Simulated assay, not measured.
Amino acid sequence: MDQGDKYPSESGRRRFVKGVVGGAALAGVGASGAAAVNSATRSPGAGGGTTQAYAIENVDGPAPRGMPQIPVEIDSEGFLKGVWPEVKTEDQGGLSIQIAETEDFKGSGVTYSTEWYQYCGVESYAGINPDYDSDNYFRVGSNPGYGWESERYSEADKLHVDDFSDYQTWSNNIGQDGLGKPATGRWRSEDAENIIPIQLIKSEQVENLASQDPWLEASTSEGFVAWLNKCTHFCCVPKYKSEGSAKFNAENDVYCQCHQSVYDPFSIVQTLFVARPRPTG
């Protein structure tokens, strides 16, 4: 088997050519065309339409694009949280609609919006409402993805920077040691029926990238990068350095076991997609 073949014949999986037609068509939309796409694709509800977002790059498998990044900040006590955009009201079709959007996020030149997360049904989650009452901390979920989390935390505990101090040597015996230390969790999901899943990593690679890129300097902190952990293919929950990933050469990546989509957490790219509107009423 070719070492570069991530879909060996014995796996029974098909190779996918990722969204060449749809992706190329959207990528070529100009300013006037974007308005037409918005009009043609927007359903009743709040927001939605053609959206640019920063994401961890999809590098293999059927997923059409990367998973959207969540800007990270660290409070004065060392607890990790996701930054929520500025909440404001705008007129859409004669109606006053609340949105959450920050232009020129921390001087990066990037407009950061909750529309980044409006896919896979997440647009209907309570935590995506702009004014949802949340402290925005990353908290441990009911089923942590890594053994070290289960040993250190209880459900709903806030993730803390001190627990990532071994990030340069951490290993779960999958792939290369010392690339970074991951955690899974939830965000803006207190007392909510639906949980917004997140994953984050502290890595020296992230620190190096942030020193060279205005967006990453603004959206990462002390080597931490985070993203909404919903596969853009069929909305499963992938995992960094997960079981079975080595068979598809994804042992150092974020791997979705459902249909073998692979994401590179150390490659943050700009994506273009049609965000779904938030339900209203």
Rank of each mutant, 00 (worst) to 15 (best):
P265W: 10
S43W: 04
G28P: 03
N194Q: 13
G30T: 14
M67E: 07
P68L: 02
P85I: 09
R152N: 03
W227L: 06
S108Y: 01
E193A: 14
H160V: 12
K6M: 11
T114M: 15
S165D: 14
L179K: 08
A275M: 05
N136S: 12
T111H: 07
I195G: 03
K18A: 06
P144F: 00
D157S: 06
Y146L: 08
A126P: 08
Y167D: 09
N249G: 10
V37L: 04
E251T: 04
Y7G: 00
V37S: 02
G175A: 04
E86Y: 09
V83K: 02
Q3W: 06
V59F: 09
Y112F: 15
W170I: 13
A246F: 09
Y263D: 05
Q212E: 14
F138G: 07
Q69V: 13
S11T: 15
D166F: 11
S76Q: 02
V20C: 03
G78E: 10
S242L: 07
S203L: 05
E101M: 06
G141N: 15
A40C: 02
R188T: 01
S76E: 04
A27L: 12
K6F: 13
A27F: 03
T232L: 08
F273T: 07
S76Y: 01
I195C: 11
A35E: 15
K247Q: 13
G28W: 12
W215P: 10
G281H: 09
G33S: 01
G22P: 08
S245A: 14
F138S: 08
T51I: 00
L209N: 12
Q168I: 13
I74F: 04
I268E: 08
A100T: 00
R278V: 01
D133P: 05
Q52Y: 13
A46Y: 05
E207P: 04
C235R: 01
W170Y: 15
T169H: 04
I56A: 10
A24D: 06
S113Y: 00
D157T: 12
V21A: 00
A63H: 05
S221L: 07
K18R: 15
D157Q: 09
A34Y: 01
G175S: 09
D5C: 13
T102W: 11
V29N: 06
V225A: 11
C258Q: 13
G12R: 05
S134I: 07
Y263W: 03
G45N: 07
G45W: 01
S142E: 11
G30Q: 02
Q257C: 10
G244Y: 06
V274I: 13
P62H: 05
V59D: 03
S154K: 15
Q212C: 04
